[in-house]
Amino acid sequence: MARLFPRDRADKLFKTPTANLGSNGSAQHPDKRKAGGHGPTLEDEVVFLLNVTPEDELPDDGPHSPAEWWNEFAPAVYRWECIRGTAAPVPVVRGPRGGVKLSPEFAEWLMGLEPGWVTSVPGLSHREKLERIGNGVVPHQAFYAFRELKTQLDEVQKSGVLDA
């Protein structure tokens, strides 16, 4: 698959991790979840729509994960890898009974957190890691929001509206 430049549009994005990922039950095919009147979760997408297994490994030859892992999400993953400057980790892990589950390391990477920010906290279970990541803030979005608010506040202060 041909790689895209980071500025190219990514039409298919992953769902955002949510706090209930760890307690949502096992993943379901997104079509089944939609048929039940619900939207798919990040875990549904990762487990059922990607071409990767827990046994796959990142190659040592560069800052990008294999494009063939990501199917229609490849442009978005490639763009985020370029922005982050790091390859996406393997997005799935093997569960205790042999099933495939969302990797907390992938959710952490997807949220823009430094590796280990949540996943290296001692004593957290798989479920607790996903809950903490899902309750978190994407630092890039928070920075943008604060920058925009500061710009607006500066404009208001220059206009003298707050001097009354």
Rank of each mutant, 00 (worst) to 15 (best):
residue 21 L to A: 13
residue 93 V to L: 12
residue 24 N to A: 15
residue 59 P to M: 11
residue 32 K to R: 07
residue 85 G to M: 09
residue 28 Q to I: 02
residue 115 P to S: 07
residue 20 N to Y: 09
residue 84 R to M: 12
residue 61 D to P: 00
residue 128 E to S: 14
residue 31 D to N: 04
residue 71 N to S: 13
residue 100 V to M: 12
residue 117 W to N: 06
residue 77 V to C: 06
residue 86 T to R: 15
residue 15 K to A: 14
residue 127 R to I: 12
residue 71 N to M: 13
residue 79 R to F: 01
residue 133 I to C: 04
residue 76 A to P: 06
residue 114 E to D: 11
residue 122 P to Q: 07
residue 118 V to L: 12
residue 82 C to N: 13
residue 129 K to R: 15
residue 26 S to C: 10
residue 65 S to E: 08
residue 82 C to V: 00
residue 73 F to G: 10
residue 113 L to S: 05
residue 130 L to C: 09
residue 138 V to H: 04
residue 59 P to W: 11
residue 48 F to M: 08
residue 102 L to I: 13
residue 85 G to A: 07
residue 37 G to R: 01
residue 114 E to M: 06
residue 104 P to V: 14
residue 107 A to C: 11
residue 27 A to T: 10
residue 92 V to Y: 01
residue 143 F to G: 03
residue 53 T to L: 13
residue 131 E to L: 05
residue 64 H to K: 10
residue 139 P to Y: 09
residue 67 A to F: 12
residue 107 A to T: 06
residue 47 V to K: 09
residue 60 D to A: 14
residue 116 G to K: 08
residue 46 V to D: 09
residue 124 L to A: 04
residue 46 V to W: 12
residue 56 D to K: 10
residue 135 N to P: 00
residue 76 A to F: 11
residue 45 E to P: 07
residue 136 G to N: 04
residue 116 G to L: 08
residue 76 A to M: 01
residue 68 E to F: 12
residue 76 A to E: 02
residue 70 W to V: 11
residue 64 H to Y: 15
